[in-house]
């Protein structure tokens, strides 16, 4: 069985600033990282590999430099890393992105039984949380979002039981395989790569599929295939803050002042 973890290389958003003149992201010199939620998606695939006889694939769509992030996935222990990269894929919104990823998963499914596709619940640069569900819809997979625990997998019956983390409650759900699962951070703690694997990952072969492999209609992918586009990026103006009380001399009193404020403005939900 194949377990696929979809990962995205994103700019380290804590370091991204917005150019106040052009309203675009200043990306110069900003390092790229693996989208933090996707790191948990990757980890869960690796955990299944540790426990069961499954093969793991890390799948990413992005520009050629995404290879760096896929090498990190190799260092963590995935069996194969596939980069979906083509100029035609560039500028994609969530619809076009899920189309390319789905096509790649279908291609893998033609060779091997795909059981689970893991995605992070969302990315930290786009924050849409739509790509995972988009994949599930296109492929007709069961769709389990916001999963924080895998309860069990029944391989003979081809079902999986997971726990979903919802606001104020958990939900235990069973679904038939194949399944697309989006994960939250509570699911696991990502592992740290050992040195031998890091060194091996430097030389690992990264499979690259461009559109000559996926053969998608160029009008349906990338910028052309994207019905949404970003018209403007800006930092919201922040109201002048307010210093309440004296937290150094009177921490308890200040804390209760703060609580009163929050209650007054109805910012605390119970």
């Amino acid at each position: 069985m194949l377990v696929i973890s979809c990962i995205k290389q994103v700019p380290d958003t804590t370091q991204v600033q917005i150019d106040p003149v052009t309203n675009t992201l200043i990306r110069d010199g900003i390092p790229f990282i693996i989208n933090p939620y996707d790191a948990h998606a990757l980890e869960e695939g690796l955990r299944l590999k540790d426990r069961y006889d499954v093969r793991t694939v890390a799948l990413s769509m992005g520009p050629p430099n995404t290879e760096a992030t896929l090498r990190k996935a190799c260092a963590l222990g995935v069996d194969e890393a596939i980069l979906l990269s083509d100029r035609a894929f560039g500028g994609a919104d969530t619809l076009a992105t899920s189309k390319v990823l789905s096509a790649a998963i279908e291609r893998l499914a033609a060779q091997e039984d795909v059981g689970i596709v893991f995605c992070g619940k969302q990315t930290i640069d786009g924050d849409t949380a739509q790509v995972g569900p988009g994949i599930a819809s296109r492929l007709g997979f069961s769709q389990l979002t916001l999963v924080d625990r895998i309860e069990s997998i029944d391989f003979p019956r081809k079902t999986i039981t997971v726990r979903r983390k919802l606001e104020g409650r958990h939900e235990i759900v069973e679904a038939p395989l194949p399944v697309m699962i989006t994960v939250v951070r509570e699911l696991n703690r990502p592992r740290y790569p050992v040195v031998a694997m890091r060194l091996a990952a430097r030389e690992a072969a990264i499979t690259v599929w461009d559109n000559s492999v996926l053969k998608l209609d160029a009008a349906t992918v990338g910028l052309k295939g994207s019905p949404t586009w970003v018209s403007k990026i800006f930092s919201p103006e922040r109201d002048q803050g307010e210093i309440i009380g004296d937290g150094i001399k009177n921490p308890v009193g200040t804390a209760s002042l703060l609580l009163d404020k929050l209650l007054d403005k109805d910012l605390l939900t119970i």
């Binding site: 703690r189 990502p190 592992r191 740290y192 790569p193 050992v194 040195v195 031998a196």
Partner: peptide, 16 residues
């Protein structure tokens, strides 16, 4: 422990 086993107190993951 760190380089061959990736085994260390969990606070260190963030640090690294």
């Amino acid at each position: 422990l760190v380089q061959e086993k990736a085994r260390f107190p969990e606070e260190l993951l963030n640090l690294f």
